[in-house]
Amino acid sequence: MISEGALRGYLLEEVLAWLLRSSGYEVLTAQDDGEQPPWKTLEERNHGLVVRGRGAWHQADTLGQFRFVPPFSLPVRLFVEAKFTQIKVRLSTVRNGHGVLHDVNENVMTTIATHSGPRRPRTRYRYSYAIFWTSGFSQDAQEFALAHQISLVDLSVPDFAHLRDLVRTAAKDVHTAMKALPATDLPTVNEIRNYLRGPLLNLSRQPIATEPSVTAPLGVLAESLYSRSTLGLILAFPAAPFVLGLASDDLYGFVRYALQHPTHSIRLRRLRQAGPHPLWQIRSEDDPAAYALTFGLPEQVEAWILDQETTTSSRMRWVKESMLSAMTLYWMDGDHAHTFQLRYRPQEIIAQSTGDLTSWPLADDLPHPPTA
């Protein structure tokens, strides 16, 4: 039987798939491929969805595709892996992600000959990989991820506490119910995931031949997520080898402001609080009370950003400043995609990290933004 810790990770991946819809990502199933063999890139097998690589098929527990194709690029697909444990993610996890990513992106067979017709091109995609974590990464895992452009997204920030509690409770209740069942009646992980996808992703709820004691906590989880309408996660894309997962306890406070100011300047600062790693906060430069977004950075990623020693060449400093001068966010409103750009001065990151926190009031000193 699946362990409670592994079940937490699987449920968290399904919740993340629901949250990432606001950033323009739709969860894929084998039916979304639209191709027939031998052109198919997705298949459904006993343990779930698999993706065709150059050398093998790879399991993709959660795979999303960005709804719009960037200019001069391929359609973008994102592998989502979540770890909900009390130990840090090790190098082996990130190395496995890199192996999968390398193989699927090397699937370069552009045409396939068939006996019944002419050669035709195979659709290609640009795959990315993001690992979402609640307890941190080892140093070598961080360094490897940064070198190979695998994004590490922090879910330990306070704004995600409610989300973590919901997933933890659901996993515990499901696991307890499963322990009371005979082995022949235990549902598979794939059945549990597909059942939860019904209410979360508007997919047809797959029937599951098990006791209601197993499925009831999944329904409670879905209802709790929908009732928490302000809970959200937005992916921010700086011109850097990683993405940022931005959280807010009042997500729509940010959206209301950004719809009126699609491009605006922001202020960044480190929060004064104890914890395993620093947290950063984003506020509008012109209206700091309008919203607050927070994010965490793995230690090695932060060190890469803050590395401004005197030995650093001016060219390297210019590259870092130009890469980290803005971040782009996407917000889906039905079928319409809004694009926001948040601009900032890289020098502020350095100043804030070294303790110059006097130029901006603390979050507790700011008035709360009005509600809609």
Score class of each variant (00 low, 15 high):
His264Trp: 06
His264Gly: 13
His264Thr: 06
Ser265Arg: 14
Arg267Thr: 08
Arg267Lys: 10
Arg267Ile: 10
Leu268Phe: 01
Leu268Arg: 00
Leu268Gly: 00
Arg269Gln: 03
Arg269Tyr: 01
Arg269Glu: 01
Arg269Val: 00
Arg270Met: 01
Arg272Met: 09
Gln273Tyr: 04
Ala274Cys: 03
Ala274Glu: 12
Gly275Pro: 07
Pro276Tyr: 05
Pro276Met: 10
Pro276Ala: 06
His277Tyr: 13
Pro278Cys: 00
Leu279His: 02
Leu279Cys: 11
Trp280His: 04
Trp280Glu: 02
Trp280Thr: 00
Gln281Phe: 01
Gln281Trp: 04
Gln281Thr: 07
Ile282Gln: 01
Ile282Ala: 01
Ser284Leu: 01
Ser284Gly: 05
Ser284Ile: 00
Glu285Leu: 11
Glu285Tyr: 02
Asp286Ile: 07
Asp287Gly: 05
Pro288Leu: 01
Pro288Glu: 02
Ala290Cys: 13
Tyr291Ser: 09
Tyr291Val: 12
Tyr291Gly: 09
Ala292Trp: 00
Leu293Cys: 05
Leu293Gln: 03
Leu293Lys: 04
Thr294Gln: 08
Thr294Asp: 10
Thr294Trp: 00
Phe295Arg: 09
Phe295Met: 06
Gly296Tyr: 13
Gly296Pro: 11
Gly296Met: 14
Leu297Asp: 02
Leu297Lys: 09
Glu299Cys: 03
Gln300Gly: 10
Val301Glu: 05
Val301Asn: 14
Glu302His: 02
Glu302Asn: 04
Ala303Lys: 13
Trp304Tyr: 06
Ile305His: 01
Ile305Leu: 08
Ile305Ala: 15
Leu306Ala: 06
Leu306Thr: 15
Asp307Gly: 11
Asp307Phe: 02
Asp307Lys: 13
Asp307Arg: 10
Gln308Gly: 12
Gln308Leu: 04
Thr310Trp: 04
Thr310Val: 06
Thr312Ser: 11
Ser313Lys: 08
Ser313Gly: 08
Ser313Ile: 14
Ser314Thr: 03
Ser314Leu: 13
Arg315Ile: 02
Met316Pro: 14
Arg317Gly: 05
Trp318Asp: 10
Trp318Gly: 07
Val319Lys: 14
Val319Arg: 04
Val319Leu: 02
Lys320His: 11
Lys320Cys: 09
Glu321Thr: 06
Ser322Tyr: 08
Leu324Val: 05
Ala326His: 15
Ala326Lys: 06
Ala326Cys: 09
Met327Ile: 04
Leu329Gly: 07
Tyr330His: 11
Trp331Thr: 02
Trp331Tyr: 08
Met332Ser: 13
Asp333Arg: 06
Asp333His: 15
Gly334Cys: 15
Gly334Phe: 15
His336Ile: 13
His336Asn: 15
Ala337Phe: 07
Ala337Leu: 12
Ala337Glu: 14
Ala337His: 10
Ala337Val: 09
His338Asn: 09
His338Gly: 15
His338Phe: 12
His338Thr: 09
Thr339His: 09
Thr339Asn: 15
Thr339Glu: 12
Thr339Arg: 14
Gln341Ile: 07
Leu342Val: 06
Gln347Trp: 14
Gln347Pro: 13
Gln347Asn: 09
Gln347Arg: 08
Gln347Lys: 12
Gln347Glu: 13
Glu348Ala: 03
Glu348Thr: 05
Ile349His: 07
Ile349Ala: 07
Ala351Met: 15
Ala351Ser: 12
Gln352Val: 00
Gln352Leu: 00
Thr354Met: 05
Gly355Tyr: 00
Gly355Met: 01
Gly355Pro: 01
Asp356Pro: 07
Leu357Thr: 06
Leu357Phe: 09
Leu357Ser: 03
Thr358Tyr: 14
